[in-house]
Design a protein around this nucleic acid. Sequence first.
DNA 1: TCAATAGTGTCTGTTAGACATTATGGA
DNA 2: TCCATAATGTCTAACAGACACTATTGA
Lengths: 231, 231
Amino acid sequence: MRERSLVIPRPSVRTMTAAVDVALLTPRDRRLAVLLLRADARARDRWLLPWDAPRSDESPDETALRVARSVLGVPPAAIDQIGAFGDGRRHPGDAQLSISFVGLVPQGAASESIDGAAWVEIDQLPLLAPRHRAVAEAAVAAVRSRIDQAPLAFRLLPAAFTLSELQSIYELLLGRALHKASFRRALQAAFLVEPTDEWRSEGRGRPAQLYRYAPRRRRGTRRGVRFDSIA
Amino acid sequence: MRERSLVIPRPSVRTMTAAVDVALLTPRDRRLAVLLLRADARARDRWLLPWDAPRSDESPDETALRVARSVLGVPPAAIDQIGAFGDGRRHPGDAQLSISFVGLVPQGAASESIDGAAWVEIDQLPLLAPRHRAVAEAAVAAVRSRIDQAPLAFRLLPAAFTLSELQSIYELLLGRALHKASFRRALQAAFLVEPTDEWRSEGRGRPAQLYRYAPRRRRGTRRGVRFDSIA
DNA sequence: TCAATAGTGTCTGTTAGACATTATGGA
DNA sequence: TCCATAATGTCTAACAGACACTATTGA
């Protein structure tokens, strides 16, 4: 047995039941949608987030990636940890601890007909275990709050996209309309995208040039602090 | 035993050993410092972050607050979850899972002489279990990335502070110098602080007026997207 | 032709940063 | 007095947002 310091008692760990929950998000019809699994083939109106327990010698990140792949068939474009939920809210597997992740799936890459699964708009979540509802809501909040820190918007789009599509993603995540000319000017100044030589015509109107995400360099400016977003 | 769906195999949870790790941060001498505990009264050069296992019926947040209080004597000015670390990096209690938190302690409120503890600048971390080093670094990164989303800077200052002190905190967290006049203009426009009728004289120079954090209202403007911070 | 969308040029009010200046204390 | 710091006014370049306009397709 180890000696203990007189000053600081050495704590000991506790065992808890743990699960990894994954909220996969994709843009659909100008809204964000999350992938839900039917809880039971018979219960039509009971749903779950994809989840599993970590296997031995598997880190939570690896578990999350495995869960996402098993549901989507392919890995998501991005996957990030949201946090650990361990309050009283019930988990479908009765895990004491939920290590939760958000994954981003490009628009259109989400095959419609995953067996027993459905993309559901985040404003219209059905009956869901309270823990899973909290995870889904935290996933959306996490993406919204990180949109201006990481190139998340590009993870919600295919490799080639129009600038209007990109602006739509930003408007979706920011929850407000943006000015077209300003958006493009700022985008051009940031050297984040480059045009391809392809064009896409959708319905009426002039065809749009396709762009790809190609961050080149950071501009030197780095303007001052913005207190606007602070509560 | 529960019936299992034919479509979706119902996962089951796994038990893991878990700990709650807390990185307490305070500004010291134009640097960020983290509170470390001596691992052992005899081993002078082995250190730990404050940590403990969650008690039964205690959420991780409650555990973190309890750990922080027990070390500081008082609750921290803010405490937020960073994430769950569960990779191979070793934890001092050999926990498989670390639920980690960052707590903010106002400048000066950190009593110097907590028995067996020391504030250490984050650039000069001593020998530390790899998991704890990762947590400490993630704590700093989390505060830095949230500085423009939440009024964290005010949690690192006492209730009354000078504008130069506030600017120092921002410079500390942003890692770059700010323009004084611009900083104050932006601050005034955001209605985040109000002057008190007290002044403080430190060494030479004109005494500075003390301000307090008093967010009044959000300005209506909400300007456009900034791509600068995106990689 | 009209409708709809893409993309761009110009104007204007706002703002960030530079600079200068005044204010006020301690050494 | 000199020096250091606080606090503020002014100027300018950059930028955000409004608006108008052209371009290009399908109906």
